[in-house]
Amino acid sequence: MEREIVLPGQLLSENKTDSGPGTYVKDGKVYSLLYGIKNTRNKIAVIPFSGKYIPSGKDFVIGTVIEVTPSNWIFDIGSPYDGLLHVSEYPKRVESDRMPGIMDVGDSALLRVKDVNPSMKVELSMRERGLKPLKVGRIIEVVPARVPRVIGHGGSMVSMLKKETGCEIFVGQNGRIWINGNDSDLDHLTEAIEMIMQQSHTTGLTERVCQFLRNEKDVADAEESIDAEEDLAEEEEAEDEDESEIAEDTYRKVDALLDETDE
Protein backbone atom coordinates (compact mmCIF):
# COMPACT_ATOMS: atom_id res chain seq x y z
CA MET A 1 0.00 0.00 0.00
CA GLU A 2 2.95 2.25 0.53
CA ARG A 3 3.36 4.96 -2.00
CA GLU A 4 6.74 5.58 -3.42
CA ILE A 5 8.64 8.78 -2.75
CA VAL A 6 9.92 10.13 -6.05
CA LEU A 7 12.49 12.78 -6.91
CA PRO A 8 12.78 15.28 -9.73
CA GLY A 9 14.07 13.58 -12.84
CA GLN A 10 13.12 10.09 -11.73
CA LEU A 11 11.88 7.80 -14.48
CA LEU A 12 8.25 6.92 -13.85
CA SER A 13 7.10 5.21 -16.98
CA GLU A 14 8.18 4.20 -20.46
CA ASN A 15 4.80 5.12 -21.83
CA LYS A 16 4.30 8.80 -22.49
CA THR A 17 0.53 8.59 -22.25
CA ASP A 18 0.92 7.93 -18.51
CA SER A 19 2.04 11.49 -17.94
CA GLY A 20 -0.16 13.25 -15.37
CA PRO A 21 0.25 16.34 -13.20
CA GLY A 22 3.74 16.81 -11.77
CA THR A 23 5.46 14.90 -14.54
CA TYR A 24 7.07 15.65 -17.88
CA VAL A 25 7.80 13.72 -21.02
CA LYS A 26 11.22 13.45 -22.59
CA ASP A 27 12.05 11.11 -25.45
CA GLY A 28 8.75 9.33 -25.00
CA LYS A 29 9.38 8.54 -21.34
CA VAL A 30 7.73 10.02 -18.30
CA TYR A 31 9.84 11.62 -15.57
CA SER A 32 8.93 13.30 -12.31
CA LEU A 33 9.12 17.07 -12.01
CA LEU A 34 8.68 17.17 -8.28
CA TYR A 35 9.81 15.81 -4.98
CA GLY A 36 6.72 14.08 -3.68
CA ILE A 37 4.69 10.95 -3.72
CA LYS A 38 3.81 8.97 -6.79
CA ASN A 39 0.17 8.35 -7.41
CA THR A 40 -0.58 5.66 -9.94
CA ARG A 41 -4.17 5.71 -10.97
CA ASN A 42 -5.21 6.09 -14.56
CA LYS A 43 -2.23 8.35 -15.10
CA ILE A 44 0.92 8.75 -13.09
CA ALA A 45 0.85 11.93 -11.04
CA VAL A 46 3.29 13.25 -8.50
CA ILE A 47 1.86 15.00 -5.45
CA PRO A 48 4.48 17.36 -4.05
CA PHE A 49 5.37 17.50 -0.37
CA SER A 50 5.46 21.28 -0.45
CA GLY A 51 5.10 24.17 -2.83
CA LYS A 52 3.26 27.41 -3.35
CA TYR A 53 -0.34 27.74 -4.35
CA ILE A 54 -0.66 28.56 -8.03
CA PRO A 55 -4.13 29.89 -8.81
CA SER A 56 -6.25 28.18 -11.41
CA GLY A 57 -9.79 28.81 -12.55
CA LYS A 58 -12.70 27.78 -10.33
CA ASP A 59 -10.59 27.35 -7.19
CA PHE A 60 -12.08 28.50 -3.93
CA VAL A 61 -9.65 30.67 -2.02
CA ILE A 62 -9.46 32.90 1.03
CA GLY A 63 -7.88 36.27 0.37
CA THR A 64 -6.83 39.30 2.37
CA VAL A 65 -7.24 42.79 0.96
CA ILE A 66 -3.93 44.53 0.39
CA GLU A 67 -5.18 47.46 -1.62
CA VAL A 68 -8.43 49.13 -2.59
CA THR A 69 -8.43 50.85 -5.97
CA PRO A 70 -11.37 52.81 -7.48
CA SER A 71 -12.76 49.69 -9.14
CA ASN A 72 -10.91 46.72 -7.67
CA TRP A 73 -10.01 45.14 -4.42
CA ILE A 74 -6.57 43.61 -4.64
CA PHE A 75 -6.22 40.45 -2.60
CA ASP A 76 -3.26 38.55 -1.30
CA ILE A 77 -4.19 34.93 -1.97
CA GLY A 78 -1.06 33.29 -0.61
CA SER A 79 0.50 32.80 -4.04
CA PRO A 80 3.11 34.65 -6.08
CA TYR A 81 0.26 36.40 -7.86
CA ASP A 82 -2.25 38.82 -6.34
CA GLY A 83 -5.92 38.50 -7.12
CA LEU A 84 -8.23 41.21 -8.42
CA LEU A 85 -11.84 41.46 -7.36
CA HIS A 86 -13.68 43.90 -9.56
CA VAL A 87 -16.62 45.74 -7.96
CA SER A 88 -18.93 44.18 -10.49
CA GLU A 89 -17.98 40.77 -9.09
CA TYR A 90 -19.26 41.80 -5.68
CA PRO A 91 -22.79 40.46 -5.15
CA LYS A 92 -24.30 43.90 -4.70
CA ARG A 93 -23.84 47.12 -6.56
CA VAL A 94 -21.25 49.25 -4.79
CA GLU A 95 -20.25 52.84 -5.32
CA SER A 96 -16.55 53.42 -5.62
CA ASP A 97 -16.29 55.54 -2.50
CA ARG A 98 -18.07 52.92 -0.41
CA MET A 99 -15.65 50.13 -1.30
CA PRO A 100 -13.41 50.52 1.76
CA GLY A 101 -16.55 50.40 3.91
CA ILE A 102 -17.31 46.93 2.66
CA MET A 103 -13.81 45.56 2.69
CA ASP A 104 -10.78 47.55 3.71
CA VAL A 105 -7.09 46.70 3.72
CA GLY A 106 -6.52 43.77 6.08
CA ASP A 107 -10.01 42.32 5.75
CA SER A 108 -10.40 38.75 4.52
CA ALA A 109 -13.00 37.19 2.29
CA LEU A 110 -14.10 33.90 0.81
CA LEU A 111 -13.63 34.06 -2.94
CA ARG A 112 -13.56 32.07 -6.10
CA VAL A 113 -11.00 32.33 -8.87
CA LYS A 114 -12.93 33.36 -11.95
CA ASP A 115 -10.13 33.28 -14.44
CA VAL A 116 -6.36 33.24 -14.70
CA ASN A 117 -4.83 34.52 -17.90
CA PRO A 118 -1.46 33.34 -19.28
CA SER A 119 0.40 36.25 -17.71
CA MET A 120 -1.07 35.14 -14.39
CA LYS A 121 -3.51 37.95 -13.89
CA VAL A 122 -5.93 36.48 -11.40
CA GLU A 123 -9.54 37.55 -11.51
CA LEU A 124 -11.66 36.78 -8.50
CA SER A 125 -15.37 36.60 -8.00
CA MET A 126 -17.73 36.72 -5.06
CA ARG A 127 -20.90 36.13 -7.02
CA GLU A 128 -21.58 32.72 -5.70
CA ARG A 129 -23.45 31.20 -2.84
CA GLY A 130 -21.50 31.08 0.38
CA LEU A 131 -18.86 33.56 -0.68
CA LYS A 132 -18.66 36.63 1.52
CA PRO A 133 -16.41 39.05 3.35
CA LEU A 134 -15.32 37.61 6.69
CA LYS A 135 -16.14 39.41 9.91
CA VAL A 136 -15.78 36.63 12.45
CA GLY A 137 -13.86 33.40 12.95
CA ARG A 138 -10.22 32.49 12.47
CA ILE A 139 -8.03 31.75 9.51
CA ILE A 140 -5.49 28.94 9.70
CA GLU A 141 -2.73 28.63 7.13
CA VAL A 142 -1.55 25.22 5.99
CA VAL A 143 0.64 23.86 3.19
CA PRO A 144 -1.48 24.11 0.02
CA ALA A 145 -0.29 20.67 -1.13
CA ARG A 146 -1.99 19.16 1.93
CA VAL A 147 -5.36 20.83 1.44
CA PRO A 148 -6.85 17.69 -0.14
CA ARG A 149 -6.08 15.90 3.11
CA VAL A 150 -8.09 18.38 5.15
CA ILE A 151 -11.00 17.92 2.78
CA GLY A 152 -10.62 14.19 2.87
CA HIS A 153 -11.92 11.61 0.50
CA GLY A 154 -15.10 13.00 -0.94
CA GLY A 155 -15.17 15.63 1.79
CA SER A 156 -15.19 13.00 4.54
CA MET A 157 -12.63 14.75 6.72
CA VAL A 158 -14.20 18.15 6.53
CA SER A 159 -17.70 16.91 7.24
CA MET A 160 -16.40 14.91 10.19
CA LEU A 161 -14.66 18.00 11.56
CA LYS A 162 -17.85 19.97 11.21
CA LYS A 163 -19.97 17.40 12.96
CA GLU A 164 -17.54 16.84 15.79
CA THR A 165 -16.87 20.46 16.58
CA GLY A 166 -20.03 22.15 15.40
CA CYS A 167 -17.93 24.82 13.69
CA GLU A 168 -18.30 26.35 10.28
CA ILE A 169 -15.37 25.47 8.04
CA PHE A 170 -14.33 26.76 4.64
CA VAL A 171 -11.26 25.23 3.08
CA GLY A 172 -9.56 27.36 0.46
CA GLN A 173 -7.41 25.69 -2.18
CA ASN A 174 -4.70 28.19 -1.35
CA GLY A 175 -4.06 26.56 1.99
CA ARG A 176 -6.12 28.92 4.10
CA ILE A 177 -8.88 27.54 6.23
CA TRP A 178 -11.57 29.70 7.77
CA ILE A 179 -13.26 28.37 10.88
CA ASN A 180 -16.00 29.88 12.95
CA GLY A 181 -17.70 28.75 16.14
CA ASN A 182 -17.28 29.19 19.86
CA ASP A 183 -13.79 29.64 21.23
CA SER A 184 -13.17 26.27 22.82
CA ASP A 185 -14.46 24.42 19.77
CA LEU A 186 -12.20 26.50 17.58
CA ASP A 187 -9.23 25.60 19.77
CA HIS A 188 -9.98 21.92 19.38
CA LEU A 189 -10.47 22.29 15.68
CA THR A 190 -7.20 24.16 15.31
CA GLU A 191 -5.40 21.36 17.12
CA ALA A 192 -7.13 18.80 14.94
CA ILE A 193 -6.02 20.60 11.78
CA GLU A 194 -2.47 20.78 13.08
CA MET A 195 -2.68 17.07 13.68
CA ILE A 196 -3.83 16.52 10.11
CA MET A 197 -0.87 18.53 8.84
CA GLN A 198 1.66 16.62 10.90
CA GLN A 199 0.31 13.23 9.99
CA SER A 200 -0.82 14.05 6.50
CA HIS A 201 1.03 11.15 4.94
CA THR A 202 -0.49 8.49 7.16
CA THR A 203 -3.39 6.21 6.76
CA GLY A 204 -6.64 6.12 8.73
CA LEU A 205 -6.27 9.75 9.60
CA THR A 206 -9.94 10.64 9.62
CA GLU A 207 -10.60 8.01 12.27
CA ARG A 208 -7.80 9.21 14.48
CA VAL A 209 -8.73 12.85 14.21
CA CYS A 210 -12.31 11.94 15.03
CA GLN A 211 -11.12 10.03 18.10
CA PHE A 212 -8.94 12.95 19.10
CA LEU A 213 -11.80 15.41 18.88
CA ARG A 214 -14.08 13.18 20.92
CA ASN A 215 -11.48 12.86 23.65
CA GLU A 216 -11.05 16.61 23.69
CA LYS A 217 -14.74 17.02 23.98
CA ASP A 218 -14.94 14.55 26.84
CA VAL A 219 -12.33 16.49 28.75
CA ALA A 220 -14.21 19.69 28.19
CA ASP A 221 -17.47 18.11 29.18
CA ALA A 222 -16.06 16.74 32.39
CA GLU A 223 -15.56 20.26 33.59
CA GLU A 224 -19.19 21.12 33.23
CA SER A 225 -22.03 20.28 35.56
CA ILE A 226 -23.58 16.84 35.50
CA ASP A 227 -26.83 18.06 34.03
CA ALA A 228 -25.17 19.76 31.16
CA GLU A 229 -23.07 16.72 30.64
CA GLU A 230 -26.08 14.51 30.25
CA ASP A 231 -27.64 16.87 27.81
CA LEU A 232 -24.47 16.99 25.81
CA ALA A 233 -24.15 13.26 25.77
CA GLU A 234 -27.60 12.99 24.31
CA GLU A 235 -26.79 15.61 21.77
CA GLU A 236 -23.62 13.83 20.92
CA GLU A 237 -25.48 10.62 20.27
CA ALA A 238 -27.86 12.42 18.05
CA GLU A 239 -24.98 13.97 16.25
CA ASP A 240 -23.33 10.63 15.76
CA GLU A 241 -26.32 9.24 13.98
CA ASP A 242 -26.52 12.36 11.99
CA GLU A 243 -22.94 12.07 10.97
CA SER A 244 -23.13 8.54 9.71
CA GLU A 245 -26.10 9.47 7.62
CA ILE A 246 -24.36 12.37 6.06
CA ALA A 247 -21.18 10.46 5.52
CA GLU A 248 -22.98 7.70 3.73
CA ASP A 249 -24.71 10.21 1.63
CA THR A 250 -21.49 11.86 0.69
CA TYR A 251 -19.98 8.55 -0.25
CA ARG A 252 -22.93 7.69 -2.42
CA LYS A 253 -22.53 10.93 -4.21
CA VAL A 254 -18.85 10.42 -4.70
CA ASP A 255 -19.41 6.94 -5.96
CA ALA A 256 -21.88 8.23 -8.47
CA LEU A 257 -19.35 10.82 -9.49
CA LEU A 258 -16.63 8.26 -9.88
CA ASP A 259 -18.87 6.13 -12.00
CA GLU A 260 -19.56 9.02 -14.25
CA THR A 261 -15.94 9.87 -14.72
CA ASP A 262 -14.94 6.27 -15.24
CA GLU A 263 -17.16 5.88 -18.19
Binding site: M1, I47, E128, R149, I151, V171, T202, G204
Partner: peptide, 18 residues
Protein backbone atom coordinates in the same frame (compact mmCIF):
# COMPACT_ATOMS: atom_id res chain seq x y z
CA UNK B 1 3.61 6.88 10.09
CA UNK B 2 5.21 6.37 6.73
CA UNK B 3 2.68 3.91 5.46
CA UNK B 4 0.57 6.18 3.35
CA UNK B 5 -2.49 4.57 2.04
CA UNK B 6 -5.38 6.77 1.25
CA UNK B 7 -2.95 9.65 1.36
CA UNK B 8 -3.47 12.86 -0.44
CA UNK B 9 -6.58 12.08 -2.25
CA UNK B 10 -6.04 14.54 -4.95
CA UNK B 11 -9.70 14.98 -5.00
CA UNK B 12 -10.11 18.54 -5.73
CA UNK B 13 -13.53 17.05 -6.05
CA UNK B 14 -14.99 19.09 -3.27
CA UNK B 15 -13.47 22.45 -3.35
CA UNK B 16 -15.70 22.81 -0.33
CA UNK B 17 -17.93 25.67 0.05
CA UNK B 18 -19.66 23.83 2.74
Amino acid sequence: VNIPDDIDEVTYVEAIVE
